[in-house]
C-alpha cells in the first residue's frame, strides 16, 4: 500500500453534514475534540460527507472510531456503541453519506486490509430544512459522546470490543 504518512493508529472520524442541523453531530464532536490534547497515535478528522475521499485516512488507521447520526426513532441524543462488521450491520441513517462509507468498509475486505471499526451512532430526529447548528437535545449529548470517544481511544487498538 502506498502511503506517504505513518499509520495514525487510531482515527476518530466524525461524519455528517453541518448544513443539515443535527445530521452534522459527528462534525460537531470533532470540533470539540480539536480543543483537547489527544494521546499519541490518535488523530481526529472532520469527514464531512467525504465518501471515497475517506478511504485513505481510514485505510491508514488500525482502528477507526466513527461518530455518525442515525434516524432510528430513539430519543434524540441517544448514543449507541456498535461494532459493525459489514455494511448490513449499520443502523439506518437516512442521510446522504451512508452508502459510501458502508461501501468503503466492505471494500476493505476485498482490498485485504481492514481496520477495527467502532461506531458511535447518535440518534437524531429526521432532518428537515438546511440549517447550521444542532438542537439542544443533541447538543446536551455532545460532552458525553466526547467522553465515550476518548475512553474508546484510550483502550487502544484491539481494545475491549463488544
Amino acid at each position: 500500500m502506498m502511503s506517504n504518512q505513518e499509520s495514525a493508529g487510531i482515527l476518530i472520524l466524525g461524519i455528517g453534514n453541518m448544513l443539515m442541523g443535527d445530521e452534522g453531530v459527528g462534525v460537531h464532536v470533532i470540533e470539540k475534540l480539536s480543543g483537547v490534547e489527544l494521546p499519541r497515535g490518535v488523530e481526529c478528522l472532520d469527514g464531512g460527507t467525504g465518501s471515497f475521499l475517506l478511504l485513505d485516512p481510514m485505510q491508514r488507521a488500525r482502528k477507526v472510531i466513527l461518530i455518525d447520526a442515525t434516524v432510528d426513532g430513539a430519543a434524540p441524543g441517544t448514543v449507541r456503541r456498535l461494532t459493525p462488521q459489514y455494511a448490513k450491520d449499520y443502523p439506518r441513517t437516512l442521510t446522504a453519506h451512508d452508502i459510501g462509507l458502508k461501501d468503503l468498509l466492505d471494500a476493505f475486505y476485498l482490498l485485504g486490509d481492514r481496520p477495527q471499526v467502532v461506531l458511535f451512532a447518535v440518534s437524531i430526529p429526521p432532518p428537515r430544512e438546511m440549517h447550521i447548528g444542532i438542537s439542544p437535545e443533541v447538543e446536551r449529548a455532545v460532552p458525553r459522546i466526547v467522553r465515550m470517544v476518548l475512553e474508546e481511544a484510550a483502550t487502544g487498538v484491539g481494545g475491549v470490543s463488544a
Partner: peptide, 30 residues
Amino acid sequence: TMVRGFEKILKGRDPRDAWAFVERACGVCT
C-alpha cells in the same frame, strides 16, 4: 426529493466566507 436551502444559510454572511459553506454542499464536489 431532497430540499436544498443554501440561499437561506448564506444571506447576511461575509462573502469571503461563502466558499466554506458551499463546499459542504456535497462530499464529492467540494
